[in-house]
Every structure is written in structure tokens, then in C-alpha cells.
Design a binder for these strands. Sequence first.
DNA 1: CGTACATTTAGACGTTTAGCTAATTATCTA
DNA 2: TAGATAATTAGCTAAACGTCTAAATGTACG
Lengths: 94, 94
Amino acid sequence: MKLLFKALNDPTRRAILDLLKHEDQTAGEIAEAFDVTWPSISHHLEILKRADLVTATRNGRYIHYALNTTVLEEAVQWMMALINADIESPHDDD
Amino acid sequence: MKLLFKALNDPTRRAILDLLKHEDQTAGEIAEAFDVTWPSISHHLEILKRADLVTATRNGRYIHYALNTTVLEEAVQWMMALINADIESPHDDD
DNA sequence: CGTACATTTAGACGTTTAGCTAATTATCTA
DNA sequence: TAGATAATTAGCTAAACGTCTAAATGTACG
């Protein structure tokens, strides 16, 4: 969870995930979609990779990045536990 | 989403949310549950408050903190969109 | 083999962050 | 109103972060 939330705590990285939602992209395609340098994107991709949010596979000269959502499910479950506990005992107001 | 993910990107703050899952707590109760100083916890609570993850209500000398999950639902939805898009078109592997 | 292309690594720089101690504010009660 | 208690604010420091430029790596192809 530590690496996951760290990875999600950046607008560019969240946008990269959105970009990979429907189609895998090469590092270059991702880099061109943003207004930062390639090395910056490369660094973001490294952080996403460490958090297991994306996978990278080399294909000749290109490296294709793909979304990996398994670790996201864990985060959703943690949040749902907070939400559900709250619904079950909705403060002492009533 | 910016403030939300920022708030979630800290183990102590996530633990505070877990602590508030079933029962509201005063700032003091929260502070005593952790091995950091009161000012540090106060700072964490401020960040959680800004992210709208908790609400604070003064009751005499005490300030009671309660979980607010509405903003969490938004994050869950964003993650579910990523997960579902991935299920619908699960890479080009097949 | 050497050049071009895709991407990453290295190193520097300014900003943000989490933690601390000390001081301050707010509230209750004797 | 003075003192005690609950909690925050202020100011500091060390570490982590995001971004940049420059250099390096890996791969393809004439």
C-alpha cells in the first residue's frame, strides 16, 4: 500500500494510468502526451512500475507499458472497508 | 482528488482513518494511539481535514474527529474505472 | 560496424514534507 | 479571574520529491 499511494500521489502519474486505461502505450507515446521531459516521464513510469501499477515489456526498440490493476483492487477494498464501517455506525448524531 | 491522495500518502494518516472507522475520537485519543508528538498528529489531522476525509467538532475542551467517507467514494470510482476498463479489454495478450 | 532512434540513468536544484520543541490559543472549573 | 487541561500554531531541520540537462544504454538496420 505504501508504494501504491505514493505512486498515486502525483497528477502526472494518475494521468498516465488514465492514458493506459484503454490502450497500452510506448514510453515515447506517454512522454509526448505530457508537457514534461522524457526523463521525467521515465522516472514516473519507474515509480508506477515499482508500485506494480504498470508492467513494461520491451518490443524491439520500444517499451510498451500496460496497466496492472490487481494492486488497485487492494486499495479499493481498504477504502470500501472505511466506507462500509461508516455506513454501519454513522456517527453518534442520531 | 489532489488533496485526497496527498492525505492518503502517509501511513500515520491512513492509520488515523482506520482508527476512526468504528468510533469518533478526540484529538488527544488519536495522539495517544501513535508514537509521535501531539503537534505532529495535529498536523496530520489538519491535512485530513483539508482533504475532507475527517470532520472536527469542538465539544467543550475536546475536539472530536469523525470519518467522512464521501470523498473516498470518488476515489473508489476513479479506481473502479481503471479496473473495469482493464477487464473490458485485458491487454492484447489473447 | 556505425549511425539513428527509444528510453533510461546520473547528478544537480528548488520545493515540499514529516517530525521535533517551544510558544500560543481556547475552554473549563475552583 | 487564575490555573489546569486540550489542542493548535510557529519555526526549525533533515529527508524525499519532481523536474531539468547531459550522458549512457539498448536495439535495429543499412
